[in-house]
Amino acid sequence: MNPLDWVVLLGTMLGIAAYGTWRTRHTDHLDTYLKGDSATKWGTIGLSVMATQASTITYLSLPGQAYENGIAFIQNYFGLPLALIIVCAVFLPIYRKLGVYTAYEYLGKRFDSKTRLLGACLFLLQRGVQSGVTIYAPAIILSSVLGWQLDLTIIFTGVVVIVYTVTGGSAAVSLTQKWQMAVIFGGMVTAFVILLTKLPPGATEMAGAMGKLQAVDFSIDPDKRYTFWSGLFGGLFLSLSYFGTDQSQVQRYIGGGGLREGRLGLMFNAMLKIPMQFFIVMLGALLFVFFQFQPETPVFFNRAEWQRHLEGADGAKFSELDKKHAELHRAKREKIEAWMLARASGDSRAKSAAREEMVTAQAAVDAVRGEAKNALLQANPRAKVKDSDYVFITFILSQLPHGVIGLLLAVMFASALSSKAGELNALGTTSTIDLWRSLRPLAAHDEARNVRAAKWFTAFWGLFAMGFALSASFAENLIEALNIIASIFYGVMLGIFLVAFFFKRVGGSAVFFAAIAAQALVIAMYFSLNIGYLWYNLIGCGACVAFSLALQAVLGSRDQPVERNS
């Protein structure tokens, strides 16, 4: 980091936040504060939906995941376009027609207040914790690599996002997300182009030969984490639940210039999300090729952690692992060069034999990386051994020119701020509309008081997320654990909404107790089965719908719906 990088980083990060704060400083209407400017067009809505979904994890960890395991992760997004079509056709018209502020307000109109409260509390619990991770995840990586203080990094990003989100509400969130996405696109394309200029000819073919380009796997093995089927069906239910029932997304498209703008914003995402994710995972697969030709490729990408152990009591063991890795890496590079020669000669038999040797050499390097991680765990059982999160940032800091380094760090912070702002905005809205108003029904008509309450709740959740990030000692795989928790809760939440939309004879008590029973079933299955976590979305949803219908048959006329869909 040199002064130019700091100017670019702080200029973009604080400039966009200040612009959003200044432009929306007079937001005093509840509708504008909670739903955004009523003239918002589909392009802004589409970018806002995209910015809320993609946090720093998307841009920092996904390339690392592709480096390590290939691009199969992209299959997780296969259900997304289909889910967005269903949200456009079914969910959005009903939300718009009823003029609700939150998805859970609809549950209150359709069922009863206890079902509304159940939906709102499930959202607040899950998203409140998740918002802590949204600022913790980039802070831990960037502070480790750049030597910044972790606490200060968390507090700085937390305060910046609280200032503009509390000031302008949804209007400020949409406005800043548009510019943050411009920074993100600009930075990622710049990094990709620079990477392409540093690659040898045949890089894509080499990534494929090393098994990194398995984009689609039609296997029906349920134990496999990423397959076409788990992505299509599990991903469909996860995306339906996320876009249709999670207030942090519902709030992005529920306002704006009308139903048409919301629908086109969602269709914009349906068309661009998979190509965008493909671009990010391809960046990771090509980073893998790039690092094959770097003599200094580390055995463990979190260099700060590795250095601590090199200088520790077991330093000799770690130094030995460094040497062993360097030798194997050099041997692998020779095999790669032999494969490139065979490829250039056009001799397919020689090329096939060279490929086998190259893959064997890669397996040897992978084995020594495994040894290194085991050594770290032996030295410190709480050591964080997942170093794939550090692959892309290592490339950024070692290969990009000054100024561009600042731009890429701005990408990481912009993505953290944009997804965090969407979450805070939704948490504040749900707390105000679904909780506070229930306790103070007479205050519902006092607009100024409602806006004040929404601002206080938004600030509270911002401080809660900061406190959570500062105090929680995050486990190594907590981020993935939170994705699993989301899958455990999302399915049941979606089930409640599907019953609301499509089973008009089911009443509030039936769906309320069915949801609790379905949730208990999913949690029990999670602890007793070993299946890909995306499937829990489908199981939870199916169980909730089936139990609701069965309970309604038992309860009969004692449990009538408050209102009907038709």
């Binding site: 992209i74 296969f78 376009p81 289909l82 967005l84 079509i85 959005l92 018209p93 718009r96 894509t204 073919e205 990534a207 494929g208 030969a209 098994g211 380009l213 398995q214 984009a215 689609v216 796997d217 039609f218 076409f228 139903l259 048409r260 629908r263 086109l264 269709m267 349906a270 068309m271 998979i274 190509p275 493909f278």
Partner: peptide, 13 residues
Amino acid sequence: GPVFGVLAFTRFS
């Protein structure tokens, strides 16, 4: 109330 690419590219392996 005015769209899915499925990569099977894989067949690089």
